[in-house]
Amino acid sequence: MDLRSVELGKEFTVKSLKGKDSPAVKKLTAMGLREGKRAKLLLRNGRVLLLRVDNSRLIIDNNLASYVEVA
């Protein structure tokens, strides 16, 4: 399943990332959301998700979230 279907407040592990050559995915990995990382879905507002990765908070859009396979 991908990141879009994670329940609010739940922790997850990033299994894999699609479209690794796209600039947005590269940026996402550089911002800390990499394969094997544990993260938590904090909030959802329309098309955007707020994640907690280590000690930082990331906002990503739903479309980009579909590139993130989670377990």
């Binding site: 796209s22 947005a24 995915v25 955007v48 707020l50 930082s56 990331l58 906002i59 990503i60 479309n63």
Partner: peptide, 11 residues
């Protein structure tokens, strides 16, 4: 169309 969007929220 829109491209993807990711940004960091500082504390």
């Amino acid at each position: 169309s829109l491209t993807h969007f990711v940004m960091e929220l500082p504390p």
